[in-house]
């Protein structure tokens, strides 16, 4: 029986250089200049990766290495130019907590909308509503429009929704630092609960303690290539620190 929750086979992903020519003038002048024939940037190059079900994988690497891109490719946000991505089970990406909130809708309406965007059914949202509100600790403001919330309250509500999604695959992109110290502790406990079961997790982080604490295994990615594999997290952290020192 195939037990891999995520499989990336020879995945290559290119992006337009500098997001491409967005204005007509750039399109026309860019065509004549040719930019040394380089119109794309290779974000991932022939990446092969298998994440068994239940494993917690850390992804480390310097800025611009392709960490968030690989996570978004796993989530299905970016389609590879070459290769195959296969996921088994409901996949949720925790990134940019609270994305999609509408300032004129109240907290409850935003839970409904955001939960729906994240793939929950109406029944699931109704069943989880009280738990989400309770977890976010903003019960007294829940009927107020979200434009009246502080940044911390929005982040708490966003995390509370994400924390109740119960996915089979959880992809986390640097979202451990939400709210004050007490709420951060609560978030970490919740993530620990989420990852303790059968859930497969991939965590992108610059915080090596987070990787050491949570992960069974880690990979280091640099310039779209995986630089380490094998078991444990130390080899990836060493490779990451080596790359950082070489770049200095």
């Amino acid at each position: 029986m195939d037990e891999n929750a995520i499989e990336l086979s020879s995945v290559t992903l290119d992006f337009p250089v500098k997001g491409g020519a967005k204005y007509l003038k750039e399109q026309i002048t860019g065509r004549f200049r040719k930019e040394k024939g380089r119109t794309t940037f290779r974000a991932l190059e022939s990446v092969n990766l298998k994440i068994p079900r239940g494993e917690i994988l850390g992804i480390v690497g310097p800025n611009g290495a392709g960490k968030s891109t690989i996570l978004r490719t796993m989530a299905g946000i970016y389609r590879p130019d070459h290769g195959t991505v296969r996921t088994r089970g409901r996949c949720v990406l925790l990134a940019g907590i609270g994305t999609g909130f509408q300032s004129n809708l109240n907290g409850r309406e935003n839970i409904r909308l955001n939960g729906s965007i994240m793939g929950l059914s109406d029944t699931e949202i109704t069943a989880k509503m009280d738990d989400i509100i309770g977890f976010s600790e903003i019960e007294s403001h829940i009927e107020q429009p979200i434009r009246t919330y502080s940044m911390g309250m929005k982040a708490r509500l966003g995390f509370a929704i994400a924390a109740h999604l119960e996915p089979e695959i959880l992809l986390i992109d640097e979202v451990m630092a939400v709210g004050d110290a007490a709420f951060q502790k609560k978030c970490k406990e919740r993530i620990r609960e989420m990852v303790s079961g059968d859930t497969t997790v991939a965590i992108v982080s610059h915080n090596m303690n987070t990787v050491k604490t949570f992960c069974d295994r880690a990979i280091c990615i640099h310039e779209g290539l995986i630089h380490t594999s094998g078991t444990g997290v130390e080899a990836a952290i060493d490779a990451y620190l080596r790359i950082l020192s070489e770049e200095e």
Binding site: G76, R79, P80, T84, R88, C91
Partner: peptide
């Protein structure tokens, strides 16, 4: 059974 999603460049 968990839903299997396969994404390719095609």
């Amino acid at each position: 059974e968990p839903k299997v999603v396969t994404t390719t460049g095609e």
